[in-house]
Design a protein around this nucleic acid. Structure first.
Lengths: 149, 149
DNA sequence: AACTTGCCATTAACATGTTAAGTAAAGGAT
DNA sequence: ATCCTTTACTTAACATGTTAATGGCAAGTT
């Protein structure tokens, strides 16, 4: 009965995305656990290493985190000595976040393993498929918002 | 410097998967919020509607949830009167979870809107691309585990 | 200047993610 | 029957996801 009207979870895009993400993140999480940082903390550090000093709003945007989560993460990273924070010189509402030498070192220490995991993925899954997948995902993300039309 | 060694987050599969998921889930979350259930609770209810009575372990597997999360969710759903639980007749370790009439009603009430969102996605993104994306994601999920080789 | 509006970041409250440990029951071996 | 291992589920502890409300500050309006 319900089997005819309720779509199979197999063809559900949200769940498919979730499972794929789990597949990819599992090994990365394991690697990061050894160093004592979470996946999200790692994302923040990488963004800071990529772009240099940023304010929290831009970090949130680039690392795909919501501000409340980021607030807690920045506190944690500060405690761990991986970032520093200072108030914006002309706008006291804002902050400037910078990765420390220790933070860069942490990234450097794990970059090789991170790249090895990426290489494994490209080989196992196929470079062509991986690129095709990334293109599709980016296209999806670029879709016009708001399906209430 | 770091720009040469640290891969851009744009081409990071984990982040691309995350952003794509956000794009798809946003509207669905909004719909479910009106009914007072979360995305995960919705997944559990759908699995139960699809497959009938199941034990928690199989629910966790099919709805892509970890057991600790599922334990809390099943408690919530029981409180809300959307599911019932009973101990397995021959194996007292196990349980049997069944969706209630109220649970089925909740699904029925939201099915149309859910399908409308799916239709919007197919139109906006393209049916061919959507299918290609789902195929790629399923292939990825089917990859051999364990990249420590 | 007083008011208003908007923005940045934080906090609060609740739900889930994640890993590890704990509890109870089932199954097999001695 | 006793012991050991495994299985199914729960709890605990900490981190994040998510929405709403709050506080501090900036900028425009009157």
């Amino acid at each position: 009965m319900t089997r005819d009207t309720v779509p199979e979870t197999n063809r559900s895009l949200p769940i498919a995305l979730l499972r794929a993400r789990e597949k990819v993140m599992g090994p990365i999480r394991a690697m990061l656990a050894d160093v004592g940082v979470t996946e999200q903390q790692w994302r923040v550090l990488r963004v800071l290493a990529e772009r240099g000093t940023l304010d929290p709003t831009e970090i949130a945007d680039r690392s795909c985190l919501l501000m409340p989560s980021l607030t807690r993460i920045l506190q944690t990273l500060t405690t761990k000595g991986l970032i520093t924070r200072e108030v914006h010189p002309t706008d006291k509402r804002r902050q400037l976040v910078t990765i420390t030498a220790a933070g860069r070192q942490l990234i450097a220490d794990n970059l090789k393993e991170s790249q090895r995991l990426n290489a494994w993925l490209r080989e196992s899954f196929g470079a062509d498929k991986l690129d095709a997948l990334l293109d599709l995902l980016n296209e999806l993300d670029a879709l016009d918002r708001d399906p209430r039309g």
